[in-house]
Design a protein around this nucleic acid. Sequence first.
DNA 1: TTGCTATCTTTACGCCGTAAAGAGTTCGCT
DNA 2: AGCGAACTCTTTACGGCGTAAAGATAGCAA
Lengths: 266, 266
Amino acid sequence: MVVFAGQGDARRSMALLWRAEGAAPPRAPRGSGPRPALSVAAIIEAGVAIADADGMAALSMRAVGERLGRTAMALYTYVPGKSELVDLMHDHVLAELPADYDLAPGWRAALTSWAEDTWDFSLRHPWVLQVSQARPVLGPHEYRSLETLLRVLYATGLDSAALRRIVGTLFHCVRGAARTVAESRLAAASTGVSDEEWWQARSGMLTEMVPDFAERFPLLVRLETEGAAPEPDEAVPYLEREARATFEAGLAVILDGIEAAVRRGR
Amino acid sequence: MVVFAGQGDARRSMALLWRAEGAAPPRAPRGSGPRPALSVAAIIEAGVAIADADGMAALSMRAVGERLGRTAMALYTYVPGKSELVDLMHDHVLAELPADYDLAPGWRAALTSWAEDTWDFSLRHPWVLQVSQARPVLGPHEYRSLETLLRVLYATGLDSAALRRIVGTLFHCVRGAARTVAESRLAAASTGVSDEEWWQARSGMLTEMVPDFAERFPLLVRLETEGAAPEPDEAVPYLEREARATFEAGLAVILDGIEAAVRRGR
DNA sequence: TTGCTATCTTTACGCCGTAAAGAGTTCGCT
DNA sequence: AGCGAACTCTTTACGGCGTAAAGATAGCAA
């Protein structure tokens, strides 16, 4: 379900992405059809609503059209195709991210806030985790959110070459852990089986079919049993708690890494 | 294109995954049809060949059947469905990963080798990056590869709780950077437009449509221009070099983080 | 030979993205 | 007033997908 940007007419895509910027597209001079009942904005919002509620797999041109009381083909008057629609949806929701962070308490606090906001954002719109990051969309809100992150990162005093690498690592860490949570929720929703139930069924089957499991994979057993689940009865499923802990630990390591680089750099 | 494990009959899936372990499935006692011309192993290999060559999107039951000279439906006698086939393919290729690492030169060297091997593996079979990590497959090779990693990690002396988080962060870092490369190659192959051409076209369009770009996003411009591309004329595309650098930087940060935790722990 | 079983094919259903053609609406122009 | 261009939106259709259902065929036991 990975979707790629920039397939279609690049000029048209860019015009749509930055459309709010320029003047309103002038209505044709000679003859014009019925007043448009739809708009690019309405289509984007319908798409986001569907993807938020039922995931990227549920996003189809027919579904978007139906939600707007039109056929799928009606959308093609406004948007070149599905791939471009996803691009527009992506840039649209990126507008939700904060535009800047207070640097007074130091870059570490600001970067933590950024990571937290990105985490929340990714779980609010889990489908963004399935939009390809290679060949990004290049929309206004994507640029703005990157600019915001860079403002925090340049406050560390590191040079551009170092920051380029750190940006990627930060994103992979946050998005990777968020992806685990998102996929776990999606699996639970689409199969009706909770993580706990799934794991119980599978692990029971494992011990039955692989009786020498403990001898073959002693460290796995050790990892699983030692210090597992300090608070077992919680509203948050186990897998999500683990992913959240991974996110926090990863962030802490990266922050320490940056700090070390800063000290070394001076 | 994210695929989920464990939808179908869990017992059947597990039996297929661990099939080499138990005795060969006995042929039916009373009457048996024509000698099977296919086998689970052959189907898995055909699937891997297709996915390696043309990506996950090209993997269809019809394509696998055709490569074996059968119809798509013939596969269903051997495999419950596509989702289970992907699981089997995943566990199958995981067998390529080394089974253990020399710990004599220290855990840091071993962990670096592990990351390098995982990186190579992910780019040899880029479609594995699209297999969901939540609700893993629980096959023998997946367990073995995890056990191998844990052997290296326990050599650090850290406790299980700390290691659980580090495992996730390591995977996210390696897989995230590898994904960038894989997606960039896939985009280039499927659109026929190289990263460089794509970027040139887009950036030209940007400066035309957003004349005040430099004022609005000064840090982005700074990041892009400062210390960019020290060796511009290379066989390896720019985006891949950047992803590789991100991978190495991320790994270095994590290794430093582990080292700090080890020192703190003692 | 008969009959059961397992393999494999055929056909079909309901999805998908979207190309092509056409119906219907609104305007500028004569 | 009426024509014709430009536009929106629908209908139909094509080739793909995963897979359910039904049937043809092959191999063995009795």
